[in-house]
Design a protein around this nucleic acid. Structure first.
Lengths: 203, 203, 203, 203
DNA sequence: GATGAATGAGCTTTCATTCAT
DNA sequence: TATGAATGAAAGCTCATTCAT
């Protein structure tokens, strides 16, 4: 959690939008200051520089996403299917509600200077790990039948992430509908077969 | 097909790699010249500028991909499942064999100046359209059961595209294996049920 | 009147001299910065660019000249001969005292980009207009006998303007003498015949 | 007289027009080649470089003007008034017929590099000298009464030179009319009084 | 005679950043 | 807290010119 002085939200917000629209490399610090409506010097008063802004934005982006996932997982039971549902729901909702944060986190990691990159990549990895654990447990429990858990995981994450790039809140599909569809898609991808069904089938 | 004088391949190649690694905005034209081993002026002799390089790279990237899809589709029969298989195979192979071309086409469209953007976006749309047609025909034929063809399509495309970002040829999975798995995943996502099976099930 | 922040006079002055000596096109912005003794960036802090400098210089040049003419005309009576004398005096003095401003205004209008050119040419026209009005009134009053007022006007203006290119303050002729001679020349050119003389001649 | 190989007139012509419109410093050698419709290399085949083109143009410009003056003076008698008439006529006609040549000669001398400048300025001086001699002879003969021959000379030259900048062949005044007016103006400026008139006045 | 290819130097401009106040 | 002023470095690009063919 950052402990920065208040009153600089406009700056972060502006930077996020500029980075998202043009990319870190193509964004000038003046563009950000102008968009935030503050002077160039004010920006430097709050942040050490352009890279510092990026670090703050990326960290906050990951944190916010992981918070959402954590909350969802806690609310879900111990069942792998329920947990996958929780993760997909949290991810889809986050991509819908925070498309800018999402796209930056997905694209601008490469713009980190070496000293920040390693830590960031490691942190980022937690997202993969969450899905990996749930899927592998589902397989161990015999409810996810996919023979290729890594590919299934990557597919699920990729399709959820892509939402940030095309979903528009003024479109035809409501967020809830979309969540439902993607949960369903994800369960299809991991080839989910509920125990009860199989038991019933046997009888 | 470009009709540029020969001997400038090194330039395009260098530009592609720099754009892919750092992003268009963060790449300097000097970086490209240096990487290509030519003088700055030589670069300007062949290309009008940085934007011109990007345009050439993006166009070629799309063309090459569409060529691969076209060839694959022609070789496939009229059956929607076979055609989806062909498209997925072509896409996965292209992402594996041309990860740099793939990632640029996926990320740097936004770096096009307005005058080139519209045409590019339209061209890009052809990729979506290929998948859309095949999937819808599969649904019409009753072999793809997914109730949400748009989501299925986006999922299939997203998961195939993501390959460019993580696949390494020196990894555990061979290209052919990966193709097979993704074809299988795609058919799962569209909920493919072959006619013969359903007929048998009915009997 | 310009409302720029103070302390950038050295820049304008340097630009004026460089433009005057080498021409706008041949002057590099580095030359100007060096001559002004400021950094290249300082120059851009005060002016948007090379063209902006030219615009400022040309506008100020015209303004200063028109101010001098205006003051002289106000001090003069309503008599056309006196007014022509005032205009020629103001012009000659301005060419002597501000040869650099004068030569730039005379030569570098063509270096204006289209968006500034029209306005400038119109403003410039006021100079011609001042002379035209005075000469035509003198003709109407019957004191200027020249049958070709346009040619006379152009001749007077051209000869006054040329002074900026050859007059040296360390030469033989004092400014006051030169003014007197050019006033006399101008009155000759418009074929001035004072009323009193003609009346006397008649008697 | 230049002894250059034929077929390069288009180049000189193009250079003249570019230099005249934009100034030497602002003209690129590529602009010239494009306007002449030849390749960049062709230009370098005929001329050593940009400066060489300027030298050729300026020399030819002065030569052509002096030729015209020489011819006119030869045709005129020995009378100073007739000779001044001849010079003004030649000058006005040249400014009318060759406005581009005229304007370059008047403005671009400063663009000569030191090694060519001295010779050019000296050559240029011949123009002044022609007028000076005629006017001084007129004064010695007692037909030009101006008390300031240098100012008169400069005035005459300046007003004639200015013609190149404003005269348009499609305007109201014919060349012949203009010549007549400027001859008349020039004689006014030098305060010409024919002998016969004065003799008559005395009687 | 003529040209396509190539270059190094220089161009105008914008960059991220610092600092005195 | 906050900013106007200033800077060195580097950006994209154009320049006049050369040279092998």
């Amino acid at each position: 959690m950052s402990t920065r002085p208040a009153g600089h939200k406009a700056i972060i917000e502006a930077a996020r939008e500029e980075f998202s629209e043009q990319g870190y490399g193509a964004t000038s610090i003046r563009d950000i200051a102008k968009r935030a409506g503050v002077s160039l010097s004010a920006l430097y008063y709050y942040y050490k520089g352009k890279q510092d802004l990026l670090v703050a934005i990326l960290e906050e982006g990951l944190d916010a996403y992981f918070d959402a996932c954590g909350t969802a997982l806690e609310a879900a039971g111990g069942d792998p299917a329920e947990q996958l549902e929780a993760l997909v729901t949290a991810t889809v909702q986050f991509r819908i509600e925070h498309p800018v944060k999402s796209s930056i986190v997905q694209t601008e990691g490469r713009s980190l200077e070496p000293e920040h990159l390693a830590r960031y990549r490691k942190n980022e990895e937690r997202g993969t790990q969450q899905f990996r654990e749930v899927i592998e447990r589902g397989i161990a429990d015999g409810v996810f039948l996919t023979p290729h858990p890594d590919d299934a995981r990557r597919a699920v994450i990729a399709m959820c992430n892509a939402i940030a790039q095309w979903y528009r809140t003024d479109g035809e599909v409501t967020p809830d509908e979309l969540v439902e569809r993607y949960v369903s898609l994800a369960l299809t991808v991991v080839e989910y077969r509920p125990r009860s069904v199989r038991r019933a089938a046997r009888g």
